[in-house]
């Protein structure tokens, strides 16, 4: 058996060739669909395309209009608030839950399932569920009032100033479970000897986590960070299901602006300009980070 496999083992050139062949579809997809589509979008964002793309160049007009549109500015502001708090709270809550589970508590499986369960729901279901939970006549507010606290008011979805936090709550509820699981996997990867060594040196549990374990979990944190960041940039369905941008335009987000202007307002140029700005913001964050991460030092 083994001798026959040995005899038929392909040459190294052939092995490389098949790997290359296998990756051709993905390479093509990446080049044509991702890079090509992106370049096309950027080019057409400088045109006055309406319902159909037309190569009618108007310079930076679409961008000037974009940045003087109140709805876009509100969208950006909402994304910034949502992104900032979502990033911090997801990491903190995710790590805390994972650390608590890691303390070898009883019924870990049950808790892990409970915490991860929301992730199994789509954003649309999450949004609708939280729309009801936060509805003043049906949800939290009426329950607390029913228990006797008559003046209790908690109605974020109908208050333009805090509506984005109502969405944030739903987003955190949905997303922290996954981050917790990733963190937990990271914690399980830490050698038990380190805990023993820390205990011998008399270092407290919290300090061990903060000073030793977290720095060791750097790759896990980066994975979590990328997952959270991509979730933030593409936030759309949660908002559509929960508030549809309302009240008024107070919970609009950039992705929704893009979709609305491309399809409902039949103004492709404006939608393309907005999506190019979204791409640009990702690039601005990504390039310095990638430079720091991969460019500065060569790790072998």
């Amino acid at each position: 058996m083994s001798s026959s496999t040995k005899a038929r083992r392909p040459s190294s050139l052939f092995r490389n060739l098949s790997a290359k062949l296998a990756s051709i579809p993905m390479v093509l997809t990446a080049l044509v669909v991702f890079v090509g589509g992106t370049a096309w979008t950027v080019v057409y964002s400088f045109t006055s395309s309406k319902l159909l793309p037309k190569a009618n160049f108007v310079g930076l007009d679409q961008y000037e209009r974009l940045w003087s549109t109140r709805r876009w500015l509100i969208s950006i502001e909402n994304l910034a608030v949502y992104g900032f708090f979502s990033m911090i709270f997801t990491l903190v809550i995710g790590f805390t839950l994972a650390a608590l589970l890691d303390r070898k508590i009883r019924g870990e499986d049950v808790f892990r399932t409970i915490f991860l369960y929301p992730f199994a729901l789509s954003f649309v279901v999450t949004g609708l569920a939280w729309q009801w939970i936060l509805n003043p006549d049906l949800g939290v507010q009426s329950v607390v009032r029913g228990m006797g606290w008559e003046s209790f008011t908690f109605n974020p979805l109908n208050d333009p100033d805090i509506v984005i936090y109502g969405i944030l709550i739903a987003g955190l509820w949905q997303g922290t479970g996954l981050i917790m699981c990733i963190m937990l996997a990271g914690l399980r990867g830490i050698d038990q000897e380190i805990w023993k060594a820390a205990r011998v040196d008399g270092i407290g549990t919290v300090k061990t986590y903060v000073r030793i374990i977290i720095p060791m979990m750097r790759p896990v944190f980066i994975t979590a960070l990328v997952l959270i960041a991509s979730g933030i940039i593409k936030i759309y369905d949660l908002v559509v299901a929960q508030t549809n941008g309302g009240p008024g335009i107070s919970s609009e987000v950039p992705a929704k602006y893009v979709i609305n202007y491309m399809f409902r307002a039949q103004n492709l140029g404006q939608g393309f300009a907005a999506s190019t700005m979204m791409l640009l913001s990702v690039v601005i964050i990504l390039i310095p980070w990638a430079y720091l991460e991969f460019g500065g030092k060569k790790r072998g």
Binding site: R70, P160, I249, A265, N267
Partner: peptide, 17 residues
């Protein structure tokens, strides 16, 4: 549709603020 959407956005903001 473009102008209508802009006016709708303005109205949505006006009516809730």
């Amino acid at each position: 549709a473009d102008t209508q959407t802009q006016i709708e956005d303005l109205m949505a903001e006006f009516w809730t603020s």
